[in-house]
Amino acid sequence: MATHQLPQISNEDRFESLVCDLFNAIDSTNTYKRFGRKGHEQKGIDVFSSEKDVVIQCKKKDLSRREIQIRRELMNDIEGDINKIISKGLNIKFSKLYFTSTYKDHPDIDEFCELIKEDKKLEFDVIYWGWDTIEEKIIDKKELIEKYFGHFVVKQDSKEASFLKNLDLKKKIEREFGDWLNYFPEDRKRRSRMILRAFDGTQYPHANEADEYGEYSWFGAEIKGLYYQGMEFIFGIEEIKVYDDNTWDFGERKEGKDFREVKVARVGQINFSDILDYDINGDEHYICPHIFCRFKYKGLPFEKVYFYSLEKGSSEYFELE
């Protein structure tokens, strides 16, 4: 993840020019060129280098919309441009097709690129670079920073600042959440339930059901404790089947395999960097701590989810693959 935040370029033509210059700088060449302009038949590409066997498509996106809308649009763009390249018979030899965007990196798009290569049996790689990757590639290239970002100043201590910010938050939470963190759940005098809210959510305090895109903006969970880089919350109780070979699942019993049923808690981990702030007193709707987070993991704030056994004396943990 980039440690600086360059402003996204709002002009489509300027974004294509930046991508062209960036790839020339990365590969120490001047062979990357723009493939026509608006109004020309671009055959699904914006930039190419015959020497490097690379073609590039640039996608400047309106980031004011819902993220899931942008991702779906990008995936449609990727498939549409690949179909155009195939049908138009691009007369340029290439082994890699890059899709670059002002939208951020996202694993769903990376996975889609892999799947479309397999499904269409493509002979070239399909690679997605979101704005996070572009930032990482451009941040040490002074000439490009000056050309495209004017008076932007690179702060050399941004990694340190991010580390110190998270450490300060950890210390603050340890101090102010002592009524929960210093006791086992059964010994707490205060209820463990808290409200996890998307800082930019619009559903609260109304129904906390998934919206039309399958995403949430708030829900209740019980605080479990801290881990080395964030907070842990219990947000469900399940029963799983554990087999003799130590595999496990939620489904029907596997034929020919012995198993035992284990009651487990579903635990989500929220990284300190995804916690913007909290209100320890809550409000008139829920008088308990409200944690304001980035819900950026498929509609949830958890960077990782695991399960642990609720059986007395057990210390078993079960991780999702």
Rank of each mutant, 00 (worst) to 15 (best):
V19E: 09
S192V: 00
L164M: 09
S10T: 02
G251E: 06
K189Q: 11
L196R: 00
Q203G: 11
C58P: 10
N76Y: 02
M231L: 07
G80M: 01
F23A: 01
A210G: 03
K104A: 14
D105Q: 10
Y32V: 07
E239C: 06
Q8H: 14
C113P: 00
I287A: 14
K304E: 01
S273H: 11
R260H: 09
M1F: 11
S87H: 12
E284L: 04
E303D: 14
F199C: 04
N83K: 12
D200M: 03
L144P: 04
Y204F: 11
K117C: 14
E284G: 04
D77Y: 03
W180Q: 08
D200G: 09
K257Q: 10
Q229H: 07
K137F: 14
D21H: 15
Y204H: 12
Q8K: 12
H106G: 03
Y243T: 08
K120T: 08
H285S: 12
T247R: 09
E319L: 14
L122P: 06
D62K: 11
E79T: 15
R253A: 15
E212Y: 14
A2F: 10
D187N: 15
Q8F: 08
E319N: 15
I86H: 12
F233V: 02
H206D: 10
H285P: 10
E215A: 10
S273N: 15
S28H: 14
G299M: 03
W129F: 09
L97V: 02
L300F: 05
P205S: 04
N166I: 09
G150F: 11
V19L: 03
K141Q: 15
L115C: 13
L122M: 03
Y128R: 01
D46G: 00
K141R: 11
K254H: 12
D132N: 08
L18G: 08
E303V: 11
F250R: 12
R197I: 01
R266W: 09
F23M: 02
E160A: 15
I68V: 09
I127T: 03
S95D: 13
P107H: 05
E238M: 06
W131D: 04
G130C: 03
D27S: 11
I173Y: 09
E146R: 15
Q69F: 10
E114R: 08
V262Q: 07
I70Q: 00
I68C: 03
C288T: 07
D200L: 07
N246M: 13
K52P: 05
Q203P: 06
S87W: 07
K93G: 13
S314L: 07
Y183W: 08
S217D: 05
V54P: 10
S314P: 15
K298E: 04
K38T: 07
I56V: 13
Q156A: 09
F152S: 05
V267A: 01
V55M: 07
K298P: 03
C288S: 13
I280D: 00
V54N: 13
K263F: 00
Q269L: 06
Q69S: 13
E114N: 04
G44L: 05
I45W: 02
D274C: 12
E123H: 15
G268D: 13
Q203R: 12
K88I: 05
E311T: 15
I139S: 00
D140T: 14
H4I: 11
W129A: 01
G214H: 00
P107I: 09
L97K: 05
L74D: 03
H151T: 06
K93C: 12
E321F: 13
Q42G: 06
S273M: 09
K60D: 08
R188C: 08
G268L: 08
S315Q: 13
H4A: 01
